[in-house]
């Protein structure tokens, strides 16, 4: 069975203005290469569809065996005026773990 990121990574998500940031951390250093191969602007854009309106950036963080996904115009406003129930995108972030784990 194909593995997904939920098997090899943890996430922590948060907001700043209309941006959503999702830190993705490999559960073990041996999974780091798979994490950065799996989490790309393209795979993330396909996952979230029209809930992310702006640019998606992925920054590798080899020092902590992870990466930081930054999605712009992704909260439907900001935490203070979005129509979303998940006002600070903390729940939205875990959807990253649905991505298939791709071999580097």
């Amino acid at each position: 069975m194909t593995r997904s990121l939920v098997d090899i990574a943890y996430v922590r998500a948060g907001d700043k203005g209309d941006s959503v940031s999702v830190g993705v951390l490999a559960k073990s250093p041996e999974y780091y290469a798979q994490v950065v191969a799996s989490v790309t602007p393209k795979t993330v854009a396909a996952l979230y569809g029209d809930w992310v309106q702006g640019e998606i950036e992925v920054f590798p963080m080899p020092n902590i065996d992870g990466c930081l996904v930054l999605m712009h115009d992704a909260l439907g406003g900001s935490a203070t005026n979005t129509l979303r129930f998940d006002q600070t995108a903390k729940s939205l972030g875990t959807a990253i773990l649905r991505l298939p784990a791709i071999a580097p």
Partner: peptide
């Protein structure tokens, strides 16, 4: 580590009025 990546932008340049920290540098 989970908190290091919480509510940040570009981790190479975490801007504050006191300085700009590189969060891709720390060893934890």
């Amino acid at each position: 580590k989970e908190h290091l990546v919480y509510e940040i932008g570009d981790p190479r340049s975490y801007f504050t009025p006191d300085g700009v920290a590189d969060f891709t540098a720390p060893h934890i």
